[in-house]
Nucleic acid binder design. Sequence first.
RNA 1: UGGGGAGUCGCCAAGUGGUAAGGCAGCAGGUUUUGAUCCUGCCAUACGAGGGUUCGAAUCCUUCCUCCCCAA
Length: 354
Amino acid sequence: MGPRMVIAMSGGVDSSVVAALMVKAGWDAVGVTLQLRSCDDRMASRSCCSADGITQARAVAGALGIPHYVLDCRETFLDRVMRPAWAEYEQGRTPSPCLHCNREMKFGYLGEYAERIGAERIATGHYARVLRVGDDVHLLRGVDRAKDQSYFLSDLSPEQVARLELPLGALTKPEVRALARDLGLVTAERHESQDICLAMEGLGFPESLRQRFDKDTRPGNFVDTTGKVLGPHEGFHRYTIGQRRGLGIALGARAYVIGLRAEDAAVILSTEEADLHSSGLRASGLHWYTAPPQRCEAQIRSRHPGAPARLEFQGDGTVLVHFDTPQSAVTPGQAVAFYDGERLIGGGWIDAAI
RNA sequence: UGGGGAGUCGCCAAGUGGUAAGGCAGCAGGUUUUGAUCCUGCCAUACGAGGGUUCGAAUCCUUCCUCCCCAA
């Protein structure tokens, strides 16, 4: 048997296929499911972290003849992902819990576990590619650009990236599903799980956090760009830059949230879509997988295609990212991922639009 | 209680005799491993209330009610 590898198994199709492929490839595979939430936490049964997911993962591991363990990391998840996310909302920023979860849980907590059991690699079902060139590890976008998830990995440390194995990055979703059928995996027909590992049933992420931590609603006003009060809103945490639905206020035209002011919990609205555009952003918490470039593409949210930009490094460790053409809804708290073509070359966190 | 104006979906607003546009908000889906964005669908048997004219009225007449403005 080959070297040891930990497979992060959620109980879904993707990670099941990963496990099967890695076993086939001769790795000494160990399936692990992270339990992030309590079953009584009002979560949907299809959640990636639910009892159902654990059951499915165990079944697949059993069928493949590999060990399967469940790591109870509910407290860690609460402390490292959920609590910080709420803190972001309180500051008028919009958190990116999936990136934190990847860094802290799937490759942090699970990474430590892997180290303890002597595993060389961690494999997950993310749609991104790992390319090893000598000792150098390149993280590339998924071949299926519509499913590409490399953005969500952009906060991993170089050390975490070095141990990655992402077998699905060269495949499309239909191909993965077909593989699952061919391999006879019981999870072949499972539906996609969406954002349910974060939100409570029917509530949405921000409101779930508020209730989970029993925080105040923080009332305040909608104001326009001149500072004029337009009316009360329903809680500061419920809004994010670029949002236009769920505002509950009719201005006669589409209104967008263009700013959040934490001091007085004001939500700034504008009916001019142009007010959403920014010529650039300031980012901190930077890390690079290559030498920092002068130019690259900057991706500022999950489905953003990436925009060509010039980087201007500041003395304090932050960087100013100047887009070639203005981008919409630059949002503090979201990650910015830097690409050179297909290759993810670094990442950071958006602090402000400029 | 003199003069003028207005009352159509939660908000704004078309419609001036022929059988209720549209926008915003809202709701329901879709897309999406974050929040958003985006896409699709739904959303007034009803036009402040009563009476009348008419084959037929939100649209004409009339009474009442309510708002607003200008005078006092």
